[in-house]
Amino acid sequence: MSAAWTLLRRDLGLLMPGGSGGGVLPLLFFLAVAMLYPFAVGPEPELLARTGGGVIWVAALLAAILPLEKLVTDDVEAGVFDQLHLRGVTEELAMAVRLIAHWLAFAPLLLIATLPAAALLGLGEETTQTVLLGLLAGTPGLAAVGLAVAALTASMRGGAALAGLMVIPLAVPILIFGAGALARPDPSALLLTAAISLGLCALAPLAAAAAIRAAREA
């Protein structure tokens, strides 16, 4: 347990904005999309209010892809997982901890940034609330998909671009239900988003761990 805590502290130090790895770039990217959208489709408030929630979802999905490049690759190359393996820290534990750290590093700030983004798009109070709840339910799943794909592509050349391409189809169910919750006032879509997220979070550390072990043999 103390090993997990030590790992989490290290991972957070690397991934959190201000840490040596990620930074606030995904967040600025997210806000920039929300800001540019009205320029592209025109400023009609009705149109923006109707489509703004979906735009926020797509922007969140794309912002979740940005940190993937640094998520696992550097540590695989530096042999960090080798050293952890020798200390009896399984790849599964390391990946589960990394998943938590990855989510903590991008999701809470994304949720906060959703508020100014919603204001920029002129979303109503109710829509904003649905978007926030949907993102809260969906971002763990996005983080899980991102982690598994990042681990899979860690030892490939040009893996970052490939990771982005692979995350998108896998994230479709989250996007459909999460953004779908905006279309009708019914909590079941949000619950389905959360269910998909939980399932992905359970599977991702196992898949990512298998990917890292397979990369050793390559």
Binding site: R10, G13, L14, S20, G21, D74, E77, A78, G79, V80, D82, Q83, L86, R87
Partner: peptide, 16 residues
Amino acid sequence: GGLGLVDERLALDPNQ
């Protein structure tokens, strides 16, 4: 018994 490995992979965060 515990294994310790030193190879060409440093496993230290380069920016820290």
